[in-house]
Write a protein that binds this DNA or RNA. Structure first.
Lengths: 141, 141
DNA sequence: CTATGTGCAAAAGTTTTGCGGGTAA
DNA sequence: TTACCCGCAAAACTTTTGCACATAG
């Protein structure tokens, strides 16, 4: 767990760039999310954070992910479960395909889509800031 | 307000097709949504419904929109306000552009996008069931 | 007549916040 | 030093639900 203290985490680099105060708890949350391969909700981030810092509070996790989101470090996603889920903004851009039957979230990518949507927004007089795109599908048999 | 009793509302036609029991309250909710030009949340649907039926309960509105959603009569949307918002499924397909500063929701359309996404899903072995797509942008000056 | 819906109020689930003590810079 | 952060518990907010009565078909 020494890497929690390491300055190498890409999320911590972003935190410094935004001049956010680097507290122990923020390092832990950044560490947990940097190492997540999925799209955890706050409850899950909290559960993973507890393994690193058994005294961290869920209120702090809520405050931290909100802070990160406001600073463009995390995206907040809604896959319809009733809880918000988070993912890093510094990954390659991708979208989600949700299995209508199992609820499983798969990632997919199509560079063309983003360019096209950027154009749609531009035609309406807007610069595209973020994009929420998710597909819901049923497995072909 | 006589139209509330009229069988003409397109949502009521869908309700009959699905063999849903047509109560007074369901007619009111269907009427309110049929006449909505925006994407109201439950609180707002309730507020508008009260003008027609001052005794309707918000619990009934929640139950009704959920029923309608489960029967494919309404889409549930999340524009990030913390409250779910609803819109009819029987309109022309369109997407949303949310103004990053004001929160205003604009509709936009691009038929090409849907076809392309249908193909992306197909390539992963899925039939596209629904599509959630929203853009967040900032007005160009 | 009977299965289903409704209103009310309470419960459940998620997220935010006030406050007193603690800490990064 | 000082402005900001944390943990706790309570509050706020959205949505669901149990129950007794009402009603559509």
């Amino acid at each position: 767990m020494a890497e929690v203290r390491s300055p190498a985490s890409p999320l911590l680099v972003l935190c410094r760039k935004k001049k956010l105060r680097l507290t122990g708890q923020r390092r832990v949350v950044a560490y947990v999310i940097s190492n997540a391969e999925d799209h955890p909700d706050v409850e899950e981030i909290y559960r993973r954070a507890l393994k690193v810092d058994p005294y961290i509070s869920i209120a702090t996790v809520y405050r931290t992910v909100r802070l990160f989101e406001e600073n463009g470090i995390l995206y907040k996603r809604d896959f319809g479960s009733g809880r918000a889920r988070y993912e890093r903004t510094d990954e390659d851009q991708h979208y989600h395909l949700i299995d209508a039957d199992s609820g499983q979230v798969l990632e997919c990518e199509d560079k063309h889509i983003e360019d096209r949507l950027r154009q749609v927004a531009a035609d309406m007089g807007y610069d595209l800031v973020t994009l929420r795109l998710s597909l819901c599908g049923r497995r072909k048999n």
